[in-house]
Design a protein around this nucleic acid. Sequence first.
DNA 1: CATGAATGAGACTTCATTCAT
DNA 2: AATGAATGAAGTCTCATTCAT
Lengths: 230, 230, 230, 230
Amino acid sequence: MSPAKPSHRRRKDARPQELLEAALALFVEKGFAATRAEEVAARAGVSKGTLYLYYPSKEELLKAVISHNLSARIAEGAVRAADYEGSAASLMRGILTDWWGDLYDSPAAGVFKLVITEVRNFPDIAEYYASQVINPAHELMGGIVRRGIALGEFRAVDVDNAVHSLVLPLVMICLHRHSLGACPLDWHLDGRNFIAQHVDLVLQGLSLKAPETPPSLPTHAPTHPSTRAA
Amino acid sequence: MSPAKPSHRRRKDARPQELLEAALALFVEKGFAATRAEEVAARAGVSKGTLYLYYPSKEELLKAVISHNLSARIAEGAVRAADYEGSAASLMRGILTDWWGDLYDSPAAGVFKLVITEVRNFPDIAEYYASQVINPAHELMGGIVRRGIALGEFRAVDVDNAVHSLVLPLVMICLHRHSLGACPLDWHLDGRNFIAQHVDLVLQGLSLKAPETPPSLPTHAPTHPSTRAA
Amino acid sequence: MSPAKPSHRRRKDARPQELLEAALALFVEKGFAATRAEEVAARAGVSKGTLYLYYPSKEELLKAVISHNLSARIAEGAVRAADYEGSAASLMRGILTDWWGDLYDSPAAGVFKLVITEVRNFPDIAEYYASQVINPAHELMGGIVRRGIALGEFRAVDVDNAVHSLVLPLVMICLHRHSLGACPLDWHLDGRNFIAQHVDLVLQGLSLKAPETPPSLPTHAPTHPSTRAA
Amino acid sequence: MSPAKPSHRRRKDARPQELLEAALALFVEKGFAATRAEEVAARAGVSKGTLYLYYPSKEELLKAVISHNLSARIAEGAVRAADYEGSAASLMRGILTDWWGDLYDSPAAGVFKLVITEVRNFPDIAEYYASQVINPAHELMGGIVRRGIALGEFRAVDVDNAVHSLVLPLVMICLHRHSLGACPLDWHLDGRNFIAQHVDLVLQGLSLKAPETPPSLPTHAPTHPSTRAA
DNA sequence: CATGAATGAGACTTCATTCAT
DNA sequence: AATGAATGAAGTCTCATTCAT
């Protein structure tokens, strides 16, 4: 009846999730090798031994962290794209702005850093990540670009490269947020602002038409020296 | 005794450089924490003790690796830009294609991964890297973009964001080359090909003019499923 | 509620015995230190916590295992000897063949291994075992030998040594059964066959008379290479 | 020049042997699982880390201990038997009294306890021990018994069983010395005395002739209650 | 200068034991 | 009574660093 004192049982159910969150934060911050298992446990509010009740080793915990933070989001974007009926450009803009914007602000963005950092030490991760994340996401984006070309909206560019031009900077700002961006420097990157303008810029590059003239002014203070990244 | 025996003398002088190269390769491949000092020494062909003759600790070795691999290249690009007399677009294309292309193919590209991975554990790196690498490079690129806008070649976009749109994917493919790209998967990224097309695409997005029609065909096999990155 | 539900009641009463059996088997197989309390519980079909309801610690469980498996058998042999009226040799033969033969085939034989293995870590065991097992058993055997000497049946050998000559090999095959004998090798020891012939051989050595001639043939296939022990 | 201060080099050569001796003593005393690696190192006068310079794991150390303490002695006995020219009985008496007597007094006697104790946890040991120790030793003894039978010195008993009757008690007193025999009790076993009388007794049992009469008196204080074992 | 044996702090992992349910 | 989640002391093994040779 009382909402307080989570029961023995309730705690047990929540543990894996709590441990995963703690592990994600610490692995992303300090790296896998430099994070002690005990730190993860402490951050999740349990003792060292409890961690091993749920994950048989630090390495298995890493793998769980990576797969857990990807499963949900991937499908979401695909659904959105499938339902869409507008232009390729507006769909692309919508997905990159909203879906990626949310990802950028969520802890899951740290997984990019984790994968980049650890994939060579744990080759299992490579195959998993390629097949479960990169391929689906790339197919999704590539499909939109191809649709735009087919409909005469985009130039007939190389699709894979175009997708990379669109997406790699967004991956990069996720990395940045969890590396240099987390350090106390005198400048920072406004991720969502960058996403919007980056997508505009590349979509303009893909477009068959000349830009509207006169071009709109930038939406934020122009060229202040304190806004650069990576 | 004799002034000769150059092999021995030369080796001694070359030691720091050899250790730096070994350390770069290993730190990039496995991460700083997961690389053993003895491995670095072995790869450089010396014993564990010798490493400590040249660098007082593993951490100092890391810092030396990072600063060593940046000093030279930065200035180089600046010189080139200062001398240039053509259009902003062609200067940008030249720098990004040649200078970045060479960087991409050199071991120094690994420093990006190293910095991303280790900044948060070694805050000294952040300030050094921001002031010695990011700022100069960003200023260089930003200057070119500003020149293009001033000359009526580019639209009046936000300069910082535009620089990021141009540069972040190039950083990203450097990271990729030393993480997923180094794993045995069934697809790979052609970095120099991507660079060329990416720069074209973004410069087109910056341009005030409509693209030439009909658009040129992609310069390589179109949309082969085995070319994606991230 | 009802006095029935015997299965539940019986289980409860049987618990200590079941735990003792499980512990004996596991301690003998893997050693005390290498056996986990939870394994014992699992083999007895209860949970880890239940074990501690019956025995306050793993060490107490060990002591219970040792004392439990000795109490009954010791007295049994003494009774038998006291009642006997035949020759010393036939009494000895009977006891060693039947009583030891049964012991050899029972799980209690493992206690020898357990004691040998663990006495030095748990000095309590030494005194208990010496006074409760070795001394009574040795007295029993020694008495028979002495009777045989007194009756002119045996030579006037050193009684203690003779008892050891008779008994130590039987202890040894019990140890063997639970160590090397339990490993998958290409030969095995036929314990009861050995006991019979060993007792004959030593009793012949004790005897004042020359062996019957011609000597009887061995009772099983002679000198087959697959019968050796320890 | 000075005999003291063993050089860096000399120490290194001696380390494996020192570690093996320390490990043998401790594994025999406390059991493998209950001995901490650091204890072994400390007894050998080195630090924890040094142990791992010479043996890659505690388990490999165990295997080295077992194999090291067997190689030499086995061959020795065989040579002795091959050269011998006297009667089977005197050869057997000589080997068991001298060779086994020395073994009994040496630390290597502890290996029996170690093997008995650990063989089920490390199946590798079983095969090694069976083929390298038991088989050669059994063949050696069996050969002597067979020679005795062939020469009309012994009765035509089952050879394997006879060997066991001779040898198992000797194995047993080795075990005893390192288990109960090492505990502070009020009685002890005189191993060499027992060996001599045991061999006499069994050889008499094997003999075709009646014992000399009157039988010789026991060679030590008769039937003192403080001489019994296991 | 160079080596590599030695060290010992520290990391991962296990498991006897406790206790809320 | 019975359970099994939780704990933390303790054990195995690693590796950065030192120093005698």
